[in-house]
Design a binder for these strands. Structure first.
Lengths: 340, 340
DNA sequence: CTGTTAGCGCTTTCAG
DNA sequence: CTGAAAGCGCTAACAG
């Protein structure tokens, strides 16, 4: 069952069938209807390779995601949700998603080549280091690229991320509203965009309430549990320990809660903790963690939209950037305080 | 940079270049070496569409994964790991992975059509209902299909799963070794293969130790947290409550621990709990959960291997089946008992 | 509005 | 062992 067969059966040329099926305006409404109906009846669907070969567009988007970059895959608890959103948004646009293999770092042209090999219409990347030669080479190409939680720059690039700064501010505001004034934070690795933004949001909110910013209240972590526990221990050992802590990642936050408990403090009784990410465990632990949830499905949808936008964007346009809203999920890890 | 250009520059015909690059035996070692070197130097890589169109094989495997089937995506905490394993194994074989869109259930031929559209070499499916018309139609096709934790049957199919039965038995054996004799279980939905197998393993291990099987010790859950809590409450309310519980899923297990605590029991002091799956939260909760870990990366690798096997298998061969070993991760949720 | 025709880049007989 | 040539199924000028 190919286009030729369809043409024969409907009594028109293959060109007309092609035009009808591709929604071209030159076909009369009547012939189009006839052809479309026949195609549906016969269960015809065009061969993707032939179409790609002839049109030089594949309708395929590549997903670049390095499972071994930082944390062996645990860094992106949200991959699944992003994938769901991306797949849905792409298939709404009639596009497909292909997972790109990771190329060795000494093969600078690797991704560029993959892009040509599959005639990709675009690439979305997450969990990769955008400064490596192979990624930079791809970004400098006219192929549309969108980075998730990743600052990318090039002729046709866009970045999608949550509004981490506002989210962090909202978390701190929540603590403030509960009466907390000595609010500390445990950060992520500050060379990562989201981590840096969360710290900025924390600071901004303190400033907004005219709270003094104390350097000893900003302890650095790496998004892993152990660093959260260590951070909490350091904070508790301070001459004037905080009554609340905004922790930039849930795994760290959960470990921080345990560290506090091990030090004889009760959560939320003695110390309030708010996390970030709303990983599955956040709802499962006790006390259930109050945290900031990101809308990962929307990441995918936004990526698909940006890709479409970029496809026709002039090569000289500046990189685009989208910030998605977040949501504070209030659970059990924060209480009020009367401690000055 | 196409094959013609390569041919011109190396002074041979396109046919020879094609043969050389595809490792065909008819080419002289010397010409092959020259061509391969030139191709590498020029950064040539063949156009996938052209190749697919001409050879009728794409090197693409489709991944069928319904994010909305049962639990809205939470049922497969392991998707990510499976994906990692699958992607790695496939790219080792020079194959690619494409995510298939979910077709509406009234479109019985949907997947079959997608399969032809992309000239897929095979499909791996997980988290779908294999009894729906659209999946059945695909399975009945000669396209190699492998189901992960899914019983599939058809001319070219294979199933991959953990050895759930042995795993469950090992969990119960662990409890037995700690002195427990009144061992209960909270199951998953028994129409799901893994859930049924885990129950079978539990029963088998009881029998092996000549422990009486008590119907009231087998309470059913649905893999969700709430059912784990409910199950534990029921067990605790028994005239002769168990001293240990094997819970068929971690989310249920964690909730069961909390339910026990709420009922005034300590874990592992008064009651031991072992879970299944080793989700991230298992290591994060307190007490950290003793549980059965599956080797998800190996799922992917096994799937790739099966696919290769099936490609050349006769259409009349019976469905294949692979059982992967698991690992008991001992943490803090099980203690010894002296209670008879 | 529709048909003819020339490829898209590669693989694969079929000769030699 | 190598080359010539015929497609793979479709799109996109170019005519009409």
């Amino acid at each position: 069952m190919d286009i030729g067969e369809l043409a024969r059966r409907s009594g028109v040329s293959v060109a007309t069938v092609s035009r009808a099926l591709n929604g071209r305006p030159e076909v009369s409404a009547e012939t189009r209807a006839r052809i479309v109906a026949l195609a549906a009846e016969l269960g015809y669907s065009p061969n993707a390779s032939a179409r790609t070969l002839a049109s030089r567009r594949s309708g395929l988007i590549g997903l670049l995601w390095d499972t071994d970059y930082r944390s062996g895959g645990r860094q992106h608890p949200f991959l699944q949700e992003v994938l769901v959103g991306l797949k849905a948004a792409l298939s709404d646009r009639g596009q497909g998603l292909i997972l790109l293999p990771i190329v060795p770092s000494d093969d600078a042209a690797g991704y560029v080549r993959l892009t040509r090999q599959y005639t990709l219409d675009g690439v979305v990347m997450m969990g990769v280091d955008q400064h490596t030669p192979q990624v930079r080479a791809l970004l400098s190409t006219p192929v549309p690229c969108v980075g998730l939680d990743l600052d990318v720059a090039g002729p046709r690039t866009a970045t999608i991320g949550s509004d981490n700064s506002s989210a962090a501010a909202a978390a701190v505001a929540h603590l403030y509203a509960l009466g907390h004034r000595r609010i500390a934070t445990i950060t992520g690795p500050l060379d990562l965009r989201p981590a840096a933004e969360r710290l900025a949001g924390y600071r901004a909110e303190l400033a907004r309430h005219r709270l003094r910013r104390r350097p000893e209240y900003e302890v650095s972590g790496d998004f892993f549990a152990a660093s959260g526990a260590a951070g909490m221990r350091r904070l508790l050992a301070l001459p004037e320990p905080p009554t609340a802590v905004f922790v930039a990642g849930d795994a760290m936050a959960i470990a921080a809660v345990h560290a506090a408990q091990d030090a004889g403090r009760s959560v939320p009784g003695d110390i309030a903790v708010v996390g970030f990410d709303d990983i599955d465990a956040a709802a499962l632990v006790r006390p259930a963690l109050t945290t900031v949830a990101q809308d990962y499905r929307r990441f995918g949808a936004a990526a698909a939209a940006e890709l479409a936008e970029l496809t026709t964007a002039p090569l000289t346009a500046p990189p685009r950037s989208t910030m998605l809203p977040t949501r504070l999920v209030v659970r059990e890890s924060c209480g009020t305080t009367t401690d000055p």
